[in-house]
């Protein structure tokens, strides 16, 4: 138990953050694409994420919640080190969450202002998350290399979200907006690739332990599917984007699927690199874990509620399945 409980919780945390990146990733991406669309298209874009964004955002609360609940000793260290980007991210998430409602409720005169707020909030939140990721995987060290690296991820992670957003729009929209989404995805593809490459290169460089894990035989061969599948999917997506005809015939979901595969592979790679540390090179999950009794008490809840959450989340996605229609309270 004392061995397994922290492992179970770190897996739940990883899963929650992965689901967060995919789900809130697409609606943050749609937010960042907002200024590139016409006024009418903006409404459709917002309508496509309207019923979902709230629940999407809850996954980060679960992810951070598990860090707080299961690994209280690491939670304090991580969040203290990430104080400024966390604060900025919270400003961003707050602004966009409010803007989402305000743009249709505060009168037409202010709609433009709230659209801008939605964009800025989405961008700030995405960049802060990139910064946090970059800073975390280089071990929360305040040196120039870490800071430059964090800045690079801050610039490139939003590209992944933009890709997710564009792919989402391909599934949820038609005609002119659909064509724009294809164009946006093409632009975002390269920066997203750079982001993935940087993260992959940096983690082994940040720690010799990680490098050893990746580059010693026979583990290296066993791990080969991770970079290979990412590369394959990447070029597959690049090819798909050059064939708008296929996308129009309803294969847009393949693009989203490809991105999901990349996200899963990247998180598996990260998990393999970092495990069993919770703060790279400083603290492992067993040192950081809360008392066994407490973890066990919550585990019953997790075992019952998590399947239920996944079940009704799928249900809600099915209710709002299909091309986005105008959001109406009536």
């Amino acid at each position: 138990m004392e061995y397994w409980l922290p492992v179970v919780y770190v897996s739940i945390m990883g899963l929650a953050l992965l689901v967060y990146v995919i789900l809130d990733g697409y609606d943050l991406g749609v937010g960042m694409l907002l200024p590139a669309a016409s006024e009418a298209e903006k409404d459709t874009m917002i309508a496509s994420i309207g019923p979902f964004w709230d629940a999407n955002e809850t996954w980060i609360v679960l992810g951070i919640g598990v860090l707080l609940i299961a690994f209280p000793k690491a939670h304090g260290v991580v969040l203290t080190a990430l104080y400024i980007p966390v604060t900025l991210m919270l400003f961003g998430l707050t602004l966009r969450g409010v803007a989402f409602d305000m743009r249709v409720k505060a009168g037409d005169k202010r709609k433009g202002m709230w659209n801008r707020a939605f964009f800025i909030g989405s961008l700030v939140a995405s960049m802060s998350q990139g910064w946090m990721l970059g800073f975390y995987i280089t071990g929360l060290q305040n040196n120039p290399v870490s800071l430059i690296f964090a800045a690079l991820i801050a610039i490139t992670l939003p590209a992944l979200y933009v890709m997710l957003g564009a792919a989402w729009l391909m599934m949820k929209t038609e005609t002119e907006l659909f064509n724009k989404a294809v164009k946006w995805a093409r632009i975002a593809l390269l920066p997203m690739g750079i982001c993935l490459l940087l993260v992959s290169i940096a983690t082994p460089l940040a720690s010799s332990v990680i490098a050893e894990r990746w580059f010693t035989l026979p583990a290296a061969i066993g791990l080969l599917p991770i970079p290979l599948s990412c590369a394959l999917v990447y070029f597959g997506m690049s090819w798909l984007l050059s064939k708008p005809v296929l996308l129009k015939r309803g294969w847009g979901w393949l693009l989203f699927g490809g991105l999901v595969v990349i996200c899963i592979m990247a998180s598996l790679g990260l998990a393999y690199s970092i495990f069993p540390d919770i703060i790279i090179g400083q603290m492992d999950i067993w040192t950081a874990a809360a008392a066994t009794d407490s973890l066990l008490f919550l585990l019953y809840g997790v075992a019952i509620t998590l399947p239920a959450i996944i079940g009704y989340s799928i249900f809600v996605y099915r209710v709002f399945h299909g091309k986005a229609t105008e959001l109406s309270y009536e």
């Binding site: 709230d54 919640g65 609940i69 209280p72 919550l298 809840g301």
Partner: peptide, 30 residues
């Protein structure tokens, strides 16, 4: 944390997802 953690955890698991997920249907699903 051994006390605060699980209580907050139960709030996220039993309440936050429930509210946020069915809010979509409540608002836009009529």
């Amino acid at each position: 944390g051994n006390i605060a953690g699980p209580l907050l955890g139960y709030e996220v698991l039993t309440a936050f997802f429930l509210e946020a997920s069915f809010l979509g249907i409540m608002l836009f699903g009529k």
